[in-house]
Nucleic acid binder design. Structure first.
Lengths: 216, 216
DNA sequence: CCGGAACCTAACACTCCGTCAGAAAACGAG
DNA sequence: CTCGTTTTCTGACGGAGTGTTAGGTTCCGG
């Protein structure tokens, strides 16, 4: 599952040279990805850039999507660092609001750092590609779980079912992901990122602590 | 701007017959859209279904995207109905939480009603198509404005800047849109839509009223 | 230096794109 | 009704990319 399937199209297991070619194709794909829109990248472009032929590409990947998938999996993209931040933070009182701001910042930074990969993943999820659906779920999984745990620990008064806590955590993650992805749309619309950050922190804080956010 | 540009590719203004053909092409596009994945719809498919030739299609639209854009604009997709609901509702006290639940329900229903069109729009926004970016912004505009107004009216105590209120409204809209779009992902993951609805309502209520959501 | 395994590619059949010249249909003035 | 004009449609084509296969090239151990 986690181990990449590097088998060639004919079922053989590639040797040294084959793996090198495969890697070269991946590198070229990555390079093109950062230079042009994913939808415009053709198999023939990758092949040309790797100084080989389309047929060779098909030897190692059934299609461009699969190459990108291998790339995304190699990055081992996940939110355990954000989950750690959430679990380690203090969520009560004034400190809690600080934690919410920190999470908003860390999330924006994380998203920005992996922007290129996430953009493609989002696109392919929108197209209904289940493989990327899975990648995205795994990507956000740890953060959602961490938020769920923290909600359970902090809001002991409210009788929230486990399922309800997970739902809230999921909604928070969805919010952060969507706002951050469309950040520049908002900027264009006259909303500054600083304000988005503060609004997100308010919502995070309230959802985790059950209390209204302190006046800023 | 609002008036559709129905000029043909050669600059002439189509007459009765031309407009009829154009409409037939749009109808066929719409029909295919609901039957298969957008990315698989080819110009030739639409032309064949409309019993005409690809060349005719290009007479009226430069590409498939433009046809879908015309379709989306013809639907006159917008959230004024949701904006009206927000503005007309009572947001104080117990009634306020009822309003939040109603909004969550109405939003989910709205999104479901226009699912096919919104799916395509989302996909094209992800691909970076600015025309659909604009459609999506306009689509959500009225709801965001309405939420902004209601926040201003309800949270008189908190000194929120106008920009800050808009940001919160924008974040709420982003949350609803994203959660609703990926609803089935959550379901698959073990989170029921009923719980998502409640969590969204909590967050909406708190953001609008500035008070913690009542225990359910 | 030879033979087989691993690797690569030329060539091909196919699909779709987007354009253009000219055929066909509709129109309208006489 | 008829004929020239305008509008609409389409056959045919060059170009680009896809995905496959048969056969060539490279590598390596013996």
């Amino acid at each position: 599952m986690v181990i990449e399937d590097t088998r060639a199209s004919d079922g053989r297991i590639p040797g040294r040279r084959g793996l090198a070619t495969r890697q070269r194709l991946l590198d070229c794909t990555e390079h093109l990805l950062s230079a042009m829109s994913f939808r415009d990248i053709k198999v023939i472009d990758v092949a040309r850039k790797a100084k080989t032929s389309p047929a060779t590409f098909y030897q190692y990947f059934p299609d461009i999507e699969s190459a990108v998938l291998a790339l995304a999996e190699a990055t081992n993209l996940d939110t355990t660092e954000l989950g750690g931040l959430v679990r380690g933070a203090d969520w009560r009182g004034k400190k809690g609001y600080e934690s919410a701001l920190q999470l908003a910042d860390a999330f924006i930074e994380f998203w920005e750092r992996h922007r290129a990969t996430i953009r493609v993943a989002d696109l392919l999820v929108a197209e209904g590609d289940m493989r990327f659906q899975a990648i995205r779920t795994r990507l956000l999984n740890d953060l959602a779980l961490a938020l769920g745990e923290v909600i359970a620990k902090t809001r002991t008064g409210a009788k929230l079912s486990s399922s309800r806590r997970l739902a809230t955590a999921g909604v928070l993650v969805a919010m952060m992901a969507n706002v951050t992805t469309h950040r520049f749309t908002y900027e264009f619309w006259g909303i500054r990122t600083a304000d988005l950050r503060a609004s997100m922190a308010d919502i995070i804080y309230t959802s985790v602590s059950g209390k209204a956010a302190p006046a800023s």
